[in-house]
Design a protein around this nucleic acid. Sequence first.
DNA 1: CATGAATGAGAATTCATTCAT
DNA 2: AATGAATGAATTCTCATTCAT
Lengths: 205, 205, 205, 205
Amino acid sequence: MISKEEHILLHAEELFAEKGFEGSSTREISKMAKVNVSMISYYFGSKEKLFVKIFELRMNESLTFSKDILANENLNEWEKLMIVINRYADRVKNLKTFYRILQREQLNNKNPYIAQFLHESKKGFLSIYSELIDKGLEKKIFTKKPRIEFIHSTVSGTIFTALNTLPVYKEFFEGDEDYEDQYFEEIKIHIQNILKHLLGYEEKL
Amino acid sequence: MISKEEHILLHAEELFAEKGFEGSSTREISKMAKVNVSMISYYFGSKEKLFVKIFELRMNESLTFSKDILANENLNEWEKLMIVINRYADRVKNLKTFYRILQREQLNNKNPYIAQFLHESKKGFLSIYSELIDKGLEKKIFTKKPRIEFIHSTVSGTIFTALNTLPVYKEFFEGDEDYEDQYFEEIKIHIQNILKHLLGYEEKL
Amino acid sequence: MISKEEHILLHAEELFAEKGFEGSSTREISKMAKVNVSMISYYFGSKEKLFVKIFELRMNESLTFSKDILANENLNEWEKLMIVINRYADRVKNLKTFYRILQREQLNNKNPYIAQFLHESKKGFLSIYSELIDKGLEKKIFTKKPRIEFIHSTVSGTIFTALNTLPVYKEFFEGDEDYEDQYFEEIKIHIQNILKHLLGYEEKL
Amino acid sequence: MISKEEHILLHAEELFAEKGFEGSSTREISKMAKVNVSMISYYFGSKEKLFVKIFELRMNESLTFSKDILANENLNEWEKLMIVINRYADRVKNLKTFYRILQREQLNNKNPYIAQFLHESKKGFLSIYSELIDKGLEKKIFTKKPRIEFIHSTVSGTIFTALNTLPVYKEFFEGDEDYEDQYFEEIKIHIQNILKHLLGYEEKL
DNA sequence: CATGAATGAGAATTCATTCAT
DNA sequence: AATGAATGAATTCTCATTCAT
């Protein structure tokens, strides 16, 4: 059974994704969640605190996301990198709603708490890429040393642009109903292909 | 000499970039532009019309953007592609402010006029990529046929993510004051590198 | 105990009667009703909806007004006609405030909903007059057949002009404080007198 | 050749008739008259002074209206009364626009100058009716002495209600395009008929 | 714990008028 | 004498939040 609080939160996430923070009114949230307006202040303190709560919820879900992978001794660096990126792509696809909010917030830089969050999260990815690539080079799995920023810009950028532009792609290429799912699978391979090239990685037989 | 109308428009662009459409109040715009609040309605009709005006202004600036390049008979497809992409990257860098607004509007889909604009603009890029790549393949300049969507996702995504994440990169890699300009020059080469790989293009000596 | 909503409505009616819709500001209404300005939007949605609400309230009060009289088998057509007109005159006198608004709205034709309302209401009176006079002629109670429009113009016109011009009459003829009440009683007899003449009706002994 | 001032005035009259004083903005007036907004303040001082100017213009046109008739020794009182009333009806019909404004202003009582004007005008009619009826009774042309207020209420009321309700009449009785002109001619006879009855006047052969 | 009526600050816009030219 | 750009007061309405129950 879902709690009333969570119920509000999920509807709020949806509305924030669609209309942004300022564009979403507490009235509309409360109408969608079919609760009284005052419930938002009651449960979360304020509209802004509700917003932050959504962030915390989703971000915490992915906190332990990569640590275990990095620590796994049965995987080599290329495999680890692929798992991190594939999981990331899946996550973005599955939490479309939330990642819309996140992208907007990246542009906003308004709420300092969230800004900090995003900042750290990005630095986290940069560290992971740094560590994996350095180790891979040491082990000679990788033969080229690219700028980490480029890796990040291309990986994240490709995933998010794919997500945001999908409807246009679908129309332009007259895709069927499975287009989206297929596209997201193939884009992982596309990224993998690019990374192989950038890192000079050769799959062994 | 800059007109009062243009003066307001430029300040509005800045604020919209920073806080979004809903997040920017006419009061604040007028305060920034040091004019009376009513001037916005007076010159533009409404806050929304001002917003659209900014769009029209910037988009019209880039209307004839690519047509002349495609028509140029002295360039081969690879060269054309590079020029289109490099110009795009430069433009995004130079009009940072506007492209923040544009990115947000991509997420919003609220104003139907602007939504249409963006939609067409994207389809325009897809056509250009399609045409150039097909011709390049015909002429055997390119040896691989990638999905056009992938090209678009990666090119646009890399540029925009670079733009948005630059402050984080700068901090993480302790970049100096020239970091930004250098980064934007190098990212063009990075994209070029990826495209060479994806298209199977080999530079002739 | 009167509700806050009704309280606002009554004060608004008064102000609308005095100054018209456009001439009455929400601020002034709220000041008169001693409530916060936002209460008007809160309770009624908008100033205009409040206005329409007043109309609906007063018009609904008089909906069943005439039907029961027309159906009464113990009254002849002359008696029915007199009751309809006398009730109308009384109503106009008792709801002076509302009928000021109504008269103005007749001149305005702005709000389509209200325009429709008034249109139907007038057609209702024309039907009643038509029916009663035709039946009265059939039964030979009436001996002359006047144009229904004339009956309507004269009956309604006399009542409303009396209402609007009363202060002038009172001053001109130096009426005492009972002048108004007496006048309204006598004007009913005056109308009756005219109608007897127009319909060729002879009271039987 | 019409002056610019008069040009504005006529367009303003039209708009005031349609939307009332508060409902008509100087911008709209200026747009209708195809002049700059500031012209209204420039020529008339203010919107309100323009409004009063319209009143003065139309009222002055009818100032000498009745005096000459009353003084005419070749007409008896009944004939004079008929001329006064017929002219009034014609005037109301011909200056529909202005009389819409006037009727609204009767309900408003806002501008004290205009209120005074209307007050005096009505008292003027009451005097004329008084004088003519008293003299007619002296001369035994009239055999009944009605209340002057009733005469006024019925005459003015019938004319104005006819004017305002004509569209409804036309629809209800499916009148053709000449309906309005015919109606206004017949209503004069209708009023004459009523007055004969009220004054006990018998036409001599 | 939960509600919903009520609040007042702030939003965008329209308005009549003024002022420099 | 005439213009039109510019003004700031006032308008209606929406908003997040509070408070009594």
